[in-house]
Simulated scan of single mutants.
Amino acid sequence: MPRLDAITLKQLRTLDAVASQGSLTAAAAKIGQTIPAIHSQIKNLEKSVGVPILVRPLVAGQMELTVEGIEVLRAAKRIEGILSQAADQLRARATGQIGQITISVVSTSKYFAPNLVRTLSKSEPEIGVSLRVGNRESVISDLDEGRCELAIMGRPPRVPVVHSVPLGPHPHGVILPPDHPFAKEDGFDPALLVKETFISREEGSGTRVLMQRFFDRFEEGPVARIVEMESNETIKQAVRAGLGIALLSLHTVHEEVAQGRLALLRGPGLPIVRHWYLVWSAHVERSIAAKRISDSIEALSGTFLPGAVSG
């Protein structure tokens, strides 16, 4: 019978160290404990859980978590995230504020998120707001593990379960060098478009998925060549240099298009309009500070988003 009330933070932190380092020896070095102490913490944790949480390798190699161990580690990360948020709240109160919150945002939103934080600092001066910027996967992880109270992203995740409210439109389009032949046309031939080199983010990224869905509408087959690059900024520079074309959030290219440094493909189905969402965990009650910031963001009605871009 599990005795979860006997689990300690020290045991959970030891498990996290072993999981991340792959061995008792490396974990001991990371957290400044002896190997016997690490072993004892893991054994006591297994006793409390009632099942093995680590698989010992038969030959030299990394130790692996059992299915049960993965669940315990997920709980440990959530506890650490919630404690971190609590520490932020206490520090904020010690300096006279009513609270401090962290908002995790996907990398595309970095084009407007800093201005949003500046606006919030004026409307809610008693609340400190910090940003965490990452890809979709890391933002979902932040929500799941309690490292943020709020998040701004595109399509809300199915797991973890969240509450969400739409903030405003998020248009996407195909960007071109200004001298590209397609830049002079009011439409496009899909058979010619798929022959272009497309510069894209990695598999699984939001814009990559959207690009694939865009081409699924046509019957011309897949794109002839895709070149992966790690950031929107790099992609923009590559398109300007004539290395290919790309489907990107139009919020990321608002200034370049307005100044004529990039052009937009025009035609049926473009731009592709998605939405931004404000998201928070359904399993953790929002703090007073988080509720006030949520209300303030909603009240802005998307006015903090970059202006609509048209070709």
Rank of each mutant, 00 (worst) to 15 (best):
I79T: 14
K122R: 11
V161A: 14
G269D: 06
V18S: 07
V162C: 12
L9F: 14
V162H: 06
P52C: 01
L120Y: 02
H251Q: 08
M63S: 07
A282I: 09
V105P: 00
A224I: 08
T108A: 11
L12Y: 03
R261T: 09
L176C: 06
V253D: 02
K30E: 02
F112T: 13
L278S: 00
I42K: 03
E145P: 06
K184G: 04
R286S: 11
D186F: 01
S130G: 13
L305W: 00
R240I: 06
P125T: 10
A289S: 09
V239L: 15
P171A: 04
V133R: 03
T119A: 15
L54R: 07
R201W: 00
A290C: 04
A87G: 12
G96V: 14
F182L: 12
V105F: 02
L9M: 10
I272W: 08
S294K: 01
P157G: 06
R155E: 14
G81H: 03
I127E: 05
I140R: 01
L65H: 14
V59T: 10
E228V: 10
Q33P: 09
G32T: 07
H172Y: 04
S249C: 13
E255R: 15
G204S: 06
D186H: 10
V59M: 05
G206Q: 07
I82D: 11
I272L: 09
L24W: 04
P57W: 02
P36W: 03
V273C: 00
T108P: 06
R93P: 05
C148G: 06
V159C: 11
R225G: 02
T95M: 13
T34N: 00
V139H: 01
K122C: 11
S294W: 00
R93L: 12
L150Y: 04
E80N: 11
R225E: 11
T66L: 13
M211P: 03
R78H: 00
L247F: 06
I31R: 14
T66S: 15
A258C: 12
I272V: 12
L90S: 05
V18E: 06
T234R: 15
T252H: 05
T66F: 14
I272Y: 03
R56E: 12
